[in-house]
């Protein structure tokens, strides 16, 4: 009895050691790629600013002071003020909420929907024809045009931005998942699973899905970045986040009118967009190297 207990303890030790070793290797590989680290640091900082926004600024993004319109950056107003005398720093920081929030929600929603659509259309041929033709139809429109059309139909509201962008990007994610799943579906181990009596559900979710995760994760970071850009575009055009609420896109729009006498109004939101998108793309590239065994071998 005691021997058995002893043995079980040893077993769990084994598992813990192996898992610890695996984690250590992963962390080391992660940090060996400087670009990935840079990307993740940028994203972490952006997320931190997004979450801590209200604590960082003594101004609110809505407070208008008519006497201090278009003030250049100073110790008082770190990024200067806009054409209505609102503190630009507060507006950019609060704008991060809209941009990052939209980006993250769109990335999550499209991943879930895209995974479901991609997996089922890879597994069932008839469904594939129907779903992929719908996706083709959606993908035939340029992303920004479709997003504008959807926003025009739904009405300008931040929730609708998320819905519209999810509708725009889901077909792309579904395509990525489907193509990964099609490869996996033909593997002998899937047939072997069938020969062991696994149901279609079990095969799709238990065995095909995990094999499509790494391209999906990588792709969703790019969707995150794309969503930020398109959201900024929509807000810039006036069909995104509605006016009093700050978003990087609509700050840019306000700044466009005064670009020659108040450079800061276009500069700071522009830099925010560039940094967050750059950070996400670097992170995504690094993840791809990390998760794809082929590129790993090439590096060694």
């Amino acid at each position: 009895m005691e021997v058995a207990v002893e043995k079980r303890r040893e077993l769990s030790d084994f598992r813990r050691d192996i898992n610890r070793e695996r984690r250590r290797l992963f962390v080391r590989r992660f940090f060996s790629n400087k670009l990935t680290v840079t990307g993740s640091v940028i994203i972490l900082l952006t997320l931190l600013v997004t979450l801590l926004g209200p604590l960082l600024s003594s101004y609110t993004p809505y407070e208008m002071v008519v006497t201090s319109r278009l003030k250049a950056p100073s110790a008082d107003h770190l990024f200067g003020t806009d054409n209505l005398g609102r503190d630009l720093f507060a507006r950019v920081v609060y704008g991060a909420r809209a941009s990052m929030g939209v980006g993250l929600s769109v990335a999550i929603i499209t991943s879930v929907l895209g995974m479901i659509i991609g997996l089922y259309s890879a597994y069932y041929k008839v469904l594939d024809h129907v779903l992929m033709r719908i996706c083709d139809g959606l993908m035939a429109f340029p992303a920004i045009l479709l997003a504008i059309a959807l926003m025009a139909a739904l009405g300008t509201k931040i929730d609708n931005v998320i819905i519209a962008l999810a509708a725009v990007f889901t077909p792309y994610v579904a395509r990525v998942v489907r193509s990964a799943a099609l490869v996996v579906r033909e593997q002998t181990y899937i047939e072997a699973m069938k020969a062991q009596g696994a149901s279609s559900m079990r095969i799709i979710w238990g065995h095909i899905a995990p094999n499509t995760l790494s391209p999906l994760i990588v792709y969703s970071t790019f969707i995150f970045a794309d969503a930020i850009i398109i959201e900024a575009g929509l807000s810039f055009l006036g069909v995104g986040v509605p006016a009093p609420d700050p978003s990087w896109g609509n700050i840019l729009f306000d700044g466009k009118l005064v670009i020659f006498n108040a450079w800061w109004m276009t500069f700071f939101p522009g830099v925010a967009i560039i940094l967050s998108v750059l950070g996400l793309n670097l992170f995504g590239d690094g993840l791809r190297d990390l998760l794809d065994p082929h590129t790993n071998h090439a590096k060694k």
Partner: peptide, 19 residues
């Protein structure tokens, strides 16, 4: 399948799920 009748496949290299 797998309970009363089992099958071993030709190719051991691709018959196991890599993940």
């Amino acid at each position: 399948r797998g309970n009363d009748i089992s099958m071993i496949f030709q190719d051991p290299l691709s018959s196991l799920n890599p993940v």
